[in-house]
């Protein structure tokens, strides 16, 4: 099936945060009590109950050159997803529609994904904590799996009043984004379509009028090296070694038993 995606156009976003609210509403995520930090940006960070938030960035120090930038912050639904790579129980997986879904009932709360994600997205603490063992399962954006598999667009997209968020086939959105960036280039030479190539393609694309760093996005996100060598090298090596040793011991048993019997009979 064709990969689905969200296209976020930062140049059309007014940071009304309707998407934040819609996300909470549809996914039944309770609000959080926060304190005034002197910014409209709220809550301060993603959490197990906040899967989507807008990031506010102020750049420049005089009224003339001041820029106030907004960027969506939620799971990027990476093609090369570090979280999927490290998840020991395969609770996290790629849905056939391309995004990164998870089965909460398989999550052990190990938190490897929390550490591995290059975008610092997953959070422990979903689904409550066990009373005795205190385990808190992982939570993150699921691209409204229940909506999109029923032909609806995600709640955030549905609610966006300015058209900054659109949803559709990733290939279509890629073309839209490229066209938009091309038209922005004359005024904003640094304009960039983020997510086209990053991690082999994100399923959330960003139209930016400046470099990713300016928007607080990593310029070159990577799966952590430790995660790759661990999962793709060490684990198969470990299985191979254990198998070889078991085989060797079995072989030794068969040979040694015969030989040693013969030896003792000779004595």
């Amino acid at each position: 099936m064709a990969d689905k995606a969200i296209l976020y156009d930062a140049t059309k976003c007014t940071a009304c945060r309707g998407c934040q609210v819609a996300c909470k509403q549809w996914n039944d995520l309770p609000g959080e009590l926060t304190t005034n930090r002197g910014t409209y940006e709220n809550p301060p960070d993603l959490s197990a109950n906040t899967w989507l938030k807008m990031r506010f960035t102020e750049i420049g120090d005089t009224p003339e050159n001041l820029r106030w930038l907004f960027a969506r912050r939620a799971c990027m639904h990476c093609t090369d997803a570090a979280c999927v790579e490290v998840c020991p129980t395969k609770a996290l997986y790629h849905h056939e529609l391309g995004f990164v879904a998870y089965k909460r009932e398989l999550c052990t709360g190990c938190g490897y994904c929390v550490e591995a994600c290059p975008f610092d997205v997953p959070r422990s603490g979903g689904g409550g904590a066990g009373t005795v063992h205190g385990v808190r399962t992982m939570s993150k954006c699921i691209l409204c799996e229940d909506r999109i598999t029923n032909g609806e667009e995600p709640a955030c997209v549905k609610t966006c009043p300015t058209g900054a968020l659109t949803y559709g086939d990733r290939s279509d959105l890629l073309a839209d984004g490229q066209a938009r960036v091309a038209s922005l280039k004359s005024t904003y030479p640094n304009a960039y379509l983020y997510g086209e190539k990053e991690l082999n393609g994100l399923h959330v694309l960003y139209v930016l009028d400046d470099t990713p760093e300016v928007y607080g996005l990593p310029a070159n996100p990577q799966i952590p090296v430790a995660a790759t060598v661990w999962q793709d090298v060490l684990q198969p090596v470990g299985w191979g070694l254990a198998g070889l040793v078991a085989l060797g011991l079995g072989l030794n048993y068969v040979i040694a038993r015969r030989k040693i019997k013969i030896n003792s009979e000779e004595e």
């Binding site: 129980t89 398989l106 709360g109 190990c110 063992h133 385990v135 684990q235």
Partner: peptide, 17 residues
Amino acid sequence: FFVPQFSGAAVGGWSGL
């Protein structure tokens, strides 16, 4: 943690405890 087929037993966090 290393055998997805066994991971059902790790679910719920008891194995970690």
